[in-house]
């Protein structure tokens, strides 16, 4: 932190090397699964950190990573909402041009959180069959055939269960209170 306050480029580079990848994969992308937008958020997050390093408060921020994470979450939510507003505008314009087009589903917003504990809590809150499908395929990394065999269903049925489970997980995954 002292290096950041001095404008030390090496310190900034070290901070990015430590946390940039983890922030991108575990904080930003689960909220904003569009790579280009997520990269913009990552750049923006570190820009804020470099411009306002003096705002870091060890007492309230708990740790440097949590401080970065909070900034990244807020930026991701802002970009996600702006992106979806733009998308809704585009969809509205398209509907004007094509009255027969289907009305898009309401935007659920960026609700995902990234902590491992919340992942586990969310899995436990799901339908057990959905949780089992997600654990087998994504956490235990078994292939589809093995997952289907363990759950006693066909491979095609397992794919559908997994897809439904993913949607259910995403809905249940609670956002941070920042």
């Amino acid at each position: 932190m002292e290096g950041l306050l001095r404008g030390d480029r090496g310190a900034a580079g070290t901070l990015y090397a430590w946390y940039g990848d983890a922030l991108f994969r575990e904080v930003i992308l689960p909220r904003l699964p569009i790579r280009e937008l997520a990269e913009n958020v990552l750049v923006d997050t570190f820009r804020v950190v470099l411009e306002r390093a003096e705002t870091y408060n060890p007492q309230s921020d708990r740790s440097i990573y949590f401080w970065l994470r909070r900034i990244a979450i807020n930026r991701a939510i802002d970009v996600h909402r702006a992106h979806h507003r733009a998308r809704r505008l585009e969809d509205a314009l398209e509907r004007e041009a094509d009255p027969g087009a289907a009305v898009p589903a309401p935007d659920q917003g960026a609700d995902a959180d990234d902590t491992r504990a919340q992942v586990e809590a969310t899995l436990q809150s799901l339908n057990p069959r959905y949780a089992e499908a997600l654990r087998l395929r994504l956490l235990d990394d078994l292939d589809r055939e093995e997952c289907a065999a363990r759950m006693g269903v066909t491979v095609g049925n397992f794919d559908v269960i997994l897809h439904r489970a993913s949607a259910a997980f995403k809905k249940a995954f609670q956002p941070d209170v920042d």
Binding site: A22, P30, A112, F173
Partner: peptide, 8 residues
């Protein structure tokens, strides 16, 4: 998003 949350 669910996949990224479960499997970063």
């Amino acid at each position: 998003q669910a996949v990224y949350a479960l499997r970063p």
